[in-house]
């Protein structure tokens, strides 16, 4: 979807006790949805089957079943502690870093169960990038931050790296702001720029899927707007899964929305449908602001 199309969307306003009006948005996207309806296995980028996850003794996710479409934005929403971030981090196995966790079921990324013992986690994380909640640039120069991924994956040629850095920064809509100071410390950038740098850093590895964990929660509204535009723009080439606390944001940028509650996937469907005609009363209660 292009930026101009996005701008046509009305700004969504939320009023307590009422469903958010999404009719305009609905109409503008309707035709796309019918085309991209998930029908066959091939069109599923991430498939989750009966997935449960435990932190030592506490269960964080319970029998999650979900299909995620390629080249679309899928938003994960739900109250704090509902398991959405845990779910996001299972997709590139970042949860492996936490000792004492346990899981059941399978997560299939591009037809491959990523929890199969033969799977190379490092290889997986190249394919599935992650953008963190807090911008976390490395204490290196802007250039080195973006070049880090390609370098560790064996790309050493300077000209090639230059190319990748420029391309990634352009894709992340940061190039014009930093092209004259690539040697500066990444820590000198503003929060919003840092987050776009982190996105560029992920793009530089050419992932298939980009996971985003509340990428705008630490940013001001202007910076947030820029990141949201960027996400829309990127969705044409990448499968994006984004955790967000902000329901308007989910409505604004996502094609599909999944609602989590207490470790359970309550409902998953097209964003317009979730926000206008939720099937489950719990979803309705959440998006109308009755809890959360």
């Amino acid at each position: 979807m292009t930026k101009s199309k996005l701008e046509k969307n009305p700004v969504l306003t939320e009023s307590k006790g009422k469903l958010i009006s999404l009719n305009a948005l609905n109409e503008s996207r309707q035709h796309e949805y019918t085309q991209k309806e998930i029908k066959t296995e091939k069109e599923v980028k991430v498939k989750v089957n009966d997935f449960s996850f435990y932190y030592s003794s506490k269960q964080a996710l319970q029998n999650v079943n979900m299909d995620i479409a390629p080249n679309e934005v899928t938003a994960l929403i739900g109250p704090s502690g509902c398991g959405k971030t845990t779910f996001l981090r299972t997709i590139n196995r970042m949860n492996d870093l936490i000792p004492g966790t346990r899981l059941e079921g399978e997560v299939i990324v591009s037809g491959q169960n990523i929890y199969h013992p033969a799977v190379d986690v490092v290889e997986l994380r190249r394919k599935v990038g992650l953008v963190f909640q807090q911008p976390n640039p490395f204490p290196k120069s802007i250039y080195e931050n973006v070049a880090y991924g390609p370098k560790i994956h064996g790309k050493k040629k300077r000209t090639l790296l230059d190319e990748i850095v420029e391309e990634s920064l352009q894709q992340a809509a940061l190039w014009d702001e930093v092209k004259d100071r690539l040697k500066d410390s990444a820590l000198s950038l503003s929060g919003g720029q840092q987050q776009r740098l982190c996105i560029a850093r992920v793009l530089a590895v050419r992932p298939e899927i980009i996971l985003m964990d509340e990428p705008t929660s630490a940013l001001d509204p202007v910076a947030t707007q820029r990141i949201e535009d960027l996400i829309r723009k990127l969705s044409s080439g990448y499968t994006i899964i984004i955790v967000t606390h902000n329901m308007q944001q989910a409505a604004r940028i996502s094609d599909f929305t999944a609602f989590f509650l207490l470790g359970e996937l309550v409902e998953c469907g097209k964003t317009a449908q979730i926000f206008t005609k939720p099937k489950d009363t719990r979803t309705e209660e959440y998006i109308t602001g009755r809890f959360g």
Binding site: R125, N136, R201
Partner: peptide, 18 residues
Amino acid sequence: VPKSYREGGLALGATKWQ
């Protein structure tokens, strides 16, 4: 050294030693 450096590196597909 902040944990976020480690996570950031691993999430980009760096091996532990890298």
